[in-house]
Amino acid sequence: MPIDFQLEAPLSARRIVVAMSGGVDSSVVAALAARTGAETIGVTLQLYDHGAATGRAGSCCAGQDIRDARAVADRLGIAHYVFDYESRFRESVIADFADEYMAGRTPIPCVKCNMGVKFTDLFALARDLGADCLATGHYVRRVMGPQGAELHRALDPARDQSYFLFATTAAQLDYLRFPLGGMPKPQVRALAQDLGLAVALKPDSQDICFVPDGDYAKIVRSVRPDADASGPILHVDGTPLGMHRGLIHYTVGQRKGLDIGGQPSPLYVIRLDPERRAVIVGPKAALAVASASLGDINWLGGDFTGPLTAKVRSMARPVPARLDGNRLVFDTPELGVAPGQAAVLYDGDRVLGGGWIDATQAAVLEGV
């Protein structure tokens, strides 16, 4: 059974804090931690009122997740603490999510949450509890290389979450452990069943935690009431084609829902112009991007200088590219590269780092 804790002193004298969300993955991590013989403490952060987020009254799913985490901790005989971080999460993740959409960008709140509440505030909590490491249920691997801990993709490509953890710093990586990175999900569920954990068959979350119904616009409107302000839909050649119902309803690469019939060929969202409140559309060829300017680059690659691949969306395939300062240059023009998303850089399975896409440089003339 692969366990990535690597504690150097006798385990009975050490302490592990496990981030417990109430799901099957973190529950199995808590069980594996307890099996090492180290003192194990489960910590759950209450981040939001799920019932309020979905508009459903009377049931708080976040509360159910907390109850599930507590039940697992009781089953394992470990301590469990809950900390209220709802206001911090609202300010640093949900408000940022709304502001990014209002600025015509496509946000990734899961990365922002990992950068802040989870991998900064939770780190502080774990250290305050005297833990020697913080273990999570993320599907990535921590591999010791010649220059220290490295972040690698999970062995199961269908579960890999490395794209969402590109902003993990070297110091954080020294403290983190990811015991599930070498396991396929069916094995994790089988372990949960063998351990008699009630969450063994609990469904995986499929959406952003505070947008479980997929209605991003509703969340943005709740934070920024003017988010539905309309504006023009313009062809890349400047031709007005109609009016849109608010920038928050559109993302780069979108084809459906433009409501501009009668066009000779399909049109796609090429970019959003928040200053003019305009949605710029054009043919698929206009989506081609030669390079992207990156901001807030987090580099984990040490002195690596070789060829790399870049992933510009969570579900995209990594493509050959090179990093020239803060400019990511693609070997072949890439489609649908959206400001606000992340570009994550790899050397094979190793995560070299990444940055936020601030702007893109077109590979073809607009209107072609």
Rank of each mutant, 00 (worst) to 15 (best):
A292D: 02
F304G: 00
A124Q: 13
D226M: 14
D204K: 15
P266D: 09
S26N: 13
A131H: 02
Y250R: 09
R224A: 07
K256G: 04
L45G: 10
L197N: 06
T44L: 04
L45I: 14
G55S: 04
R141P: 01
F5R: 14
R15F: 02
K118M: 07
A200N: 09
S205F: 06
G37T: 12
L197K: 14
V368M: 12
R224L: 10
P203W: 11
R313S: 13
A316T: 00
L11A: 15
L165P: 02
D237W: 07
T54D: 00
P2T: 15
A362C: 03
G63M: 05
G182W: 04
P240G: 07
G246A: 08
A278F: 08
E39W: 03
Q6Y: 05
L176N: 00
L134R: 12
F330M: 09
I357M: 05
L7A: 06
A290W: 08
P186Y: 03
Y101Q: 10
A227N: 11
Y163P: 02
L129N: 07
L155K: 13
A190C: 03
T136M: 13
R177V: 06
D4Q: 07
I78C: 04
P184H: 11
R70L: 03
L335C: 07
M1D: 13
G77S: 10
A198W: 03
G23Q: 10
V188N: 07
L294W: 08
L7W: 04
G336S: 14
V143I: 12
D347P: 02
R277P: 03
I66W: 05
T251Y: 06
V223N: 05
L191H: 11
A95C: 00
A30D: 05
L180V: 09
T239R: 15
N114W: 01
R313H: 13
V351N: 04
P240F: 11
H50C: 04
I66F: 02
P212L: 05
P179S: 12
L345H: 05
I108W: 11
A217H: 09
G282E: 08
H249F: 13
E86K: 15
V236I: 03
C60R: 11
V252D: 01
L76R: 13
T305E: 03
A34M: 04
L258Q: 09
T136W: 05
G22Q: 11
T120A: 14
W356H: 10
